[in-house]
Amino acid sequence: MNKLDSSDMDADSPPAPQKKTMSHEIFHRFSKVLLTSIIIFLLLLKIVFSIALITMFKKHSEVLDEKAITKELNYTELGCTKQHPLLKDKVWSCCPKDWKPFSSHCYFTATGSASWSGSEEKCSNMGAHLMVIHNQEEQDFITKILNPKAAYFIGLSDAGHRQWQWVDQTPYNESATFWHPGDPSSDNEQCVIINHRDTGWGWNDVLCSGKQKSVCQMKKIYL
């Protein structure tokens, strides 16, 4: 009997099948493409969902803000005037009853006396803040409705080292200030009142703990 040489067996052996290898590679590539497509789709879906969520949140916040303002005011009546006909979105500008309108704001002389922080709290409870004076016209308007024998806190205070700040974060503009001559006069007096002297109406720095009347201010309500 002839013995088979191992080399003959190897030579006669058929080549390894390629179909399985190619199928495996095609499947592997398809899986990678599919996985990448799914990831991209999920990312796009996330972006679209985020944009939709932000848009809904903004609209919802606007509605809540309007409701919150109405709730905080606790007034039964509004005094409204018709807006310029070119303003299509909002027809009426309104202030709560007994508040005085000027420009884009409403003003109210709070009853009673309190410290500066107590006065600001009073205004805050009405959806407002202590008055911020932006210019000469606003100063002249408000002083016409104040009692010259009284003093009124306004929304200006010293955060330290004579760094004056308005309560609504309006930048403090030294060219639009109305200090009495010689004021501000003391580092210990860190709150501001508006009062009348022989020279007319002006601002005076005083102790924050002192009790004074106050003027509240809020933005007009547009309907």
Results as ranks from 00 to 15, higher is better:
N74K: 15
I194Q: 13
T109C: 01
P101C: 05
N173C: 00
K88T: 10
R162C: 02
S175M: 13
K20A: 01
S13V: 04
V206Y: 02
I40K: 11
M126V: 04
L73G: 08
A68G: 05
L4K: 11
H161M: 09
G200T: 02
K100M: 09
S186Q: 08
H28L: 09
K19N: 03
V91L: 09
H180R: 04
E62W: 02
E62N: 14
L44H: 03
T199P: 00
S124V: 09
R29H: 11
T199R: 10
T36S: 15
F41G: 14
A176K: 15
T109I: 15
K219Q: 10
E120M: 04
E121H: 11
S104V: 03
D140S: 12
S157R: 07
V91E: 08
F102L: 07
S115R: 10
D8R: 04
D140V: 06
E189R: 07
S13L: 11
S115F: 02
E77N: 13
N147A: 02
W203H: 03
L43T: 12
L146K: 08
P96K: 11
S175C: 05
F57R: 13
E138P: 01
M131R: 08
F153G: 11
S104Q: 05
L87Y: 06
K67N: 14
K219H: 15
P171C: 01
I133R: 13
I221G: 01
G210Y: 15
G210H: 11
N204T: 10
W116H: 10
A176M: 15
V33A: 11
T143S: 13
Q83I: 00
N135F: 00
D5P: 01
A176G: 01
M1K: 09
L35P: 00
T36F: 09
N74R: 14
H28V: 08
A114M: 12
N204M: 03
H24L: 02
I154L: 10
V215M: 02
S113T: 15
L146V: 08
L73F: 00
E138K: 07
D8P: 00
Y152S: 05
D5Q: 13
K144E: 14
I40M: 14
M56D: 04
A114H: 10
S175Y: 02
H196N: 15
H180Q: 09
P101S: 09
G127D: 01
Q165E: 06
I51R: 07
T109K: 05
M126G: 07
D65Y: 12
V206H: 03
F178N: 08
